[in-house]
Every structure is written in C-alpha cells, then in structure tokens.
Design a protein around this nucleic acid. Structure first.
Length: 205
DNA sequence: AACAAGATTAACT
DNA sequence: GTTAATCTTGTTA
C-alpha cells in the first residue's frame, strides 16, 4: 500500500494564484483516459489572476460559455482550444466566484511513454516534447472537451478521476526562474508581470 | 449571419 | 526570422 500523494482541495483554494503557480513546479500531472495512464512532472507554469488581469480570459469579470468554469471552486480543469489546433490545460484555483487559474506550460514526461508515442506519432519521447502548453495536452491526451473535469475526489483516492495532480518533487527557490508570460503582449502593463515560473528537471528523480 | 482573433506549433527560407 | 495550419469562440450587426 503506497500512501496517497493526491493533492487535496485545500491546495487549490489558496488565495494567491501566483504562489500556487510556483508550488505546482515539481508536482506530477497525471491523466487516465480509458485506462491509458500518462504523467509528467510540471516544469513550467503561468498564473492568471482573474478579473484584474488583462491577460486573463476572465479580465473585467467577463463571463462566457467558455470561461465560466474559471469561476467555479478551485480544483477543476479549464481547457480551451487555441488557434484552432491546440488544447491548453489550466488548473482553476481560489474559491467559487474568483476566476483564478494556472496554465501548465511544460512537463517532464514520466509514466506512459509508449502511449505518448502513439499520441504524437513520434519514435521516441524527448524532453522537448513536453515543453509548450499545446504539447502538454498532446502527450497527456487532454482535449478541450475535458474542461470542467474535477482534479480531486472525496476520500476515494484517484478512483473515478481522469485528471489529477500528485505530490512528487520539492523544488527549491534557487532552481526556479520567473519571467513575463508568453504570448500576452495585448495585455499592456500586465504583460510585464513575472507570473511565469520554470525549472530544469533533466531526468527522473 | 458574418467575421476577426487567438495564453501555439512545426515547417519553412 | 517568417509563415501556414486550423476552427472555436466572442463580438458585432
């Protein structure tokens, strides 16, 4: 019996989405679709700070069919289609009504490498295959139709979950780099905020 | 009903 | 460094 490493609800309810983005580094993002389990260690994230953040889909309190899931209680997935091609996976945080989210921009592939090969049609899975928000979803089989799926469950471990996050590696501050977010030039001054976090995990610990 | 844009990626020159 | 790919979504009419 291995003890459960599943992150519980309280992790996602924290009030500071920037802190959550930093703390997600080194965590293990896992999917299990139709029995195909794949996972990777999170190595790059970006925080999106809700109604006051011009770069966020929820800026100024806007609510649409697509982004309404951002307003739910923390601990669910917000996935949307970008450029007609890529599904981008976010973790919704904070309490109900506060639309904060963290975009997962990079993973170090861990479990299910064979499945990942089929999903990408690659011969081998390399580190670079997990860097980039569109590539994260490709490797893990996440689709924008999965938006709204819960990342936690009540008491029964991961049974019933299709996407979840586990405790894995502790990353010290000296190994974390922060920088401005990518692809949000339209956000004016908010584009300069250091809400992007990354670390260099080169091999499985 | 029509249209422009997008939290990107891979393949070019 | 530049650009095509690709289509849902939000906005405007």
């Amino acid at each position: 019996m291995s003890r459960s490493r599943l992150l519980d609800k309280s992790f996602y309810l924290h009030g500071d989405v920037v802190t959550i983005a930093r703390n997600l580094l080194g965590k293990k993002l896992v999917t299990n679709f139709a029995g195909y389990l794949t996972s990777g260690l999170i190595v790059e994230t970006e925080a999106y700070a809700g109604v006051s953040d011009r770069a966020s889909h929820a800026w100024s309190g806007k609510i649409t069919p697509r982004n309404k899931i951002m307003y739910s209680e923390g601990g669910v997935a917000y996935v949307y289609l970008c450029y007609g091609i890529h599904s981008l996976f976010n973790v919704v945080t904070n309490v109900h009504g506060i639309p904060h989210a963290v975009l997962i921009r990079g993973i170090f592939p861990q479990d299910g490498l064979e499945v990942m090969k089929h999903r990408t049609a690659h011969q081998e899975i390399k580190i670079q295959d997990g860097i980039g928000p569109g590539k994260v979803s490709k490797l893990l089989g996440i689709h924008y139709s999965h938006s709204g799926l819960p990342l936690t469950s009540k008491g029964a471990g991961v049974s019933g979950l299709q996407i979840w996050i586990e405790d894995a590696v502790t990353i010290s501050d000296v190994n974390i780099k922060s920088s401005p977010r990518v692809g949000v030039d339209y956000a004016g001054e908010d584009a300069l905020l250091p809400y992007r976090f990354s670390t260099d995990i080169k091999k499985a610990p």
